[in-house]
Computed example of a mutant assay.
Amino acid sequence: MTHKERTALVVVDMQQGFFDNSWGATTNHPQCEDNVALLIHAWTEANQPVVIVRHDSLDSTSPLNTDHPGNSLMPETAGVDPALMVTKTVNSAFLGTPDLEAWLRAGQITTIVLCGIQTNMCVETTARMGGNLGFDVVVAIDATRTFDLAGPDGTTVDAATLMRTTATNLHGGGFARVASTSVVVAELRKNVRDTRASQ
């Protein structure tokens, strides 16, 4: 992260429905939840904006459907008073309501840090779109998680490989910078100190 006045933390789809067994095997749990909590704490402490994103699935059988208890937020995000709450029905948080891009631009926020679920789905899609829109995007990769996924030939790719592939796609494709939670928090705190020292 470069020295900027405000950096938004965008917390993607931290919802109870992702504990449902229908998703299959997962990786780095509960590290993801713990790291999301660390990021939220750091952003709140630094008085920086936190955006909470919730997926409202249109599929009536999905654990993330609004009629399902799994649509509710996990404890790490349920108690947060966000600067913005975005609901969406597709992968990208930039295609939700209210308009995330418009809100960021109105607040002159050019850098976003992403975390949440799933790494290779909504987090990656939001990161790609954010990069395409010209935002500086950082993904706290160890504050995300995903699930094993079957490909078109029936071969299952494990969650850890999918996470590495997402990190490679985002980094190698120039969509985002991929970093650890500890690095992101350290950079945030340094930026806050530098901003205060310059005032």
Rank of each mutant, 00 (worst) to 15 (best):
P152L: 11
V36A: 12
V86T: 02
F94E: 13
P63L: 01
A127Y: 02
P98H: 03
T111L: 05
D81L: 07
A160Y: 06
D56I: 04
W43T: 01
R177W: 13
V157F: 12
A78H: 09
S60H: 14
T66L: 05
I141V: 11
K88T: 05
V139M: 02
M129D: 10
L149E: 11
T77I: 01
M163D: 02
S72Q: 14
S92Y: 10
H55Y: 04
P63G: 05
A167Y: 11
V50H: 01
L114A: 07
L38G: 04
L162H: 08
P98Q: 00
S180P: 08
L39K: 03
T126C: 12
A143E: 04
P82L: 11
C115N: 07
T125C: 10
A102D: 05
L100N: 03
L58K: 15
P69C: 10
T44F: 11
R105W: 10
I52G: 07
P49Q: 04
G79L: 11
T97R: 01
F135W: 03
A78S: 14
S72C: 15
A83Q: 04
A140L: 08
V36K: 02
L39S: 06
V138W: 01
P82G: 01
A143C: 06
P49S: 06
S60Q: 15
A37L: 14
G131T: 08
R54F: 01
A127N: 08
C115K: 08
T168P: 00
V137T: 09
D148W: 01
P63A: 04
D153C: 10
V80D: 01
N71W: 05
I52K: 00
E76K: 09
R54Y: 03
I112G: 07
A176N: 07
G151V: 03
G96T: 03
F175N: 07
A42D: 07
G151W: 09
F94S: 08
E45F: 07
G79I: 10
L104A: 08
P69Y: 14
G172F: 13
E124N: 12
H171K: 15
E45S: 14
A102F: 10
G173M: 14
W103P: 01
G173T: 00
T155V: 15
I40G: 05
T168M: 12
G70V: 06
W43Y: 07
V157G: 13
R145F: 15
N47F: 09
T97I: 11
